[in-house]
Structure formats: C-alpha cells, structure tokens
Design a protein around this nucleic acid. Structure first.
Lengths: 157, 157
DNA sequence: GTAGGTTAGTTGCTGATGCAACTATATCAC
DNA sequence: GTGATATAGTTGCATCAGCAACTAACCTAC
C-alpha cells in the first residue's frame, strides 16, 4: 500500500509495470535484430514500409507517418531519407499543400517489405501471440485501448 | 485467419501487439521527459539508481545491472560513467574477481533518487495503474510472466 | 493584400546505444 | 602448472534519435 513516504511499486503493480518494460525491450531487441540480419531493415524502416504498403497509392504525409510511428518529425525525415536513398520510397509534393510531401513506397520497397513481412510476423507470433490465449489477447487489447484513450490528458503543466 | 500468403495481423491480435508498442513509446516518452525536466535524470539513469538503492551496500556488479536493465554492457559502462561523473555512483573493485566492479550509489545519488522517485512513481500510477483495475493488473502480470518465461527459448539459428 | 501567427518539413547539433575489438583476469583440460 | 577458452568490463566507431532553429507555405483578420 503505497504512501507518500513509501511510493514503491510492489506485488502485482510492480509486475504489471516492470514486465511491460522488460518484455518490450526483449521483444524489440530480438525482432529488430532478426529483421536487420535477414532483411537489412531496422524496425523503424519496417514500420514505415508497413504503413506505406497499406496506404492509398498517393502514399502518406510525412506527419501522418510520424504520428503513427510515434517518432519525432525530424526522426521521420531521416528514416525516410534512408529508405529513399535505398530506393524503397520516394517523396512526392503534396498538390493541395505545397509545404507537404507524400512518401510513397516503390516497387523495390514493396518487394523488400513483402519478403520481410512473413518472417517478421511469424517471429512476432512465435514470441508473443503463441504464448497467450484468446482471453489474454483480449485483455491486452482492452488494456491498451484504455491506456491510449486518455493519451491527450497530459500532465498538469 | 492468417496464412502463409496472408500473414497480416488482424483484430485482437493486431490490437494486442500494436497497442503494446504504442503505449510503451508514449509512456516512456512522457515519463522520460518528466524525469529529465524535473530531476535531470534519464530513465536509464533512474533505473540504475533504483537498482542500486535497493541493493546491498556493496552495490551490484556491472553485468548484473546490465542484465536487469536489458542494455548492452557497453551501454551500461557509459551510463555508469555519466552517473559517476556527476557523483551519483562510484565503482569499487570486486575483491573476489579482479575483472569485475561493483557500482555503488553515493549519498548524493541516493538523495537525487529519493527526490525523483516519488514524482516519477506518481506519474507512472497516474498514467498506467490508475487507468486499470485489479483484474487487469493481474492479467498483465500473468501475461508478462508467460512471455518472459521462455525468454531463453531463442529463435532457431 | 498584408501582417501575424501557425504548420510541414528539414537541418545542425548533441547525446545515447550497440557491435566489434581489445585488455585483463578467471577457469577448465590435461 | 600450462595452454586454450571464456568472461568482465571498457573503448572506438558508426548509427540513430530528439530538440531547437530554420525555411517555406498556409490561414486568418482586418
């Protein structure tokens, strides 16, 4: 029972929190390493390609992708730079807003992504989904939903 | 229903997985920013101090801390370097193994950590625990436990 | 139509992280 | 004991990410 003088996390509170940090790091580490090793893609690059592969043919605005990946705009600029240098995406000016760009996946990008997707998702399923039952997956979905809902309820400044 | 030709994640599988990635990034981002802003500690530095504050007086071996934080040994070396430069930890040779060091928290480190802990945990509770009920926290604890158990069952080489 | 403020995206810079290589020590086989 | 191998920790290097500052374009008020 936490108090002002003993704010420590304990028992299930501790396990629920610390477990997420640990599981996330281990899974991300392992999945990223596999993707890098077998397909020469970082997890960030994979996620950009994933979003673009499912996007309308015009592609997606830079900011949309940044928001989806939860990375800074500058981070996304360089992520897309790297993908563009390798010929996996291209940028197209946005006709309705001259400040903006669409990022679009290229044939080469789609091909690389298609190659990586199967193995990556198999690994995600092996390490994550296959360890859990349907009820647990439902719980998780509900929990994430709950935690994301108040995402805008920022800390009091 | 995923198949070899359609490996896509859908429905609750997608929500359970993607939600973790998103929640983790948002929480870590917000919590790290708060800690940095108010106490000039990165999350990694906070976690090192947390582990040392709860450790026996001799401190902890570098490798133990690295394993606990799930960071590389080189990453931990520099994390401890930074904390040592600021006077928050010291290194002591390990008497029983001349290759090793103990990292120990100093009075200044303990003081800084004590100052940060309350606010940080309040924020963790506000953003995480307080959004969930007891059953959900139990579910999470069980889920992380399940996912960490086979941590050593590495991908087939 | 123009001034003020806002938004999209990029760039300079700095800090953090991991891998691979290295040093020093420990351990095991014999 | 001695040589081969493994482990603890650090360092060089390259990569990656964010913040703050910048440019260009948009938008609103008047």
């Amino acid at each position: 029972m936490p108090t002002a003088s003993n704010p420590r996390l304990e028992g299930r509170d501790l396990a629920a929190w610390k477990g997420m940090l640990r599981v996330h790091r281990e899974l991300i580490g392992a999945l990223g390493a596999g993707l890098e090793r077998d397909y020469d893609l970082s997890l960030g690059e994979y996620e950009v390609l994933l979003n673009l592969a499912d996007a309308p043919p015009d592609g997606l605005r830079m900011s949309e992708i940044a928001a989806e990946l939860v990375v800074s705009r500058s981070g996304l600029t360089r992520l897309v730079d790297r993908l563009a240098d390798r010929g996996f995406v291209t940028r197209a000016r946005c006709p309705s807003d001259a400040r903006g760009y669409f990022a679009q996946i290229t044939a080469a990008g789609a091909e690389r992504f298609a190659a990586a997707r199967g193995a990556h998702l198999a690994e995600v399923r092996r390490r994550f989904h296959s360890q859990l039952d349907a009820g647990e997956l439902d719980s998780l979905a509900r929990i994430w939903d709950r935690l994301l809902a108040p995402a805008v309820a920022k800390s009091p400044k």
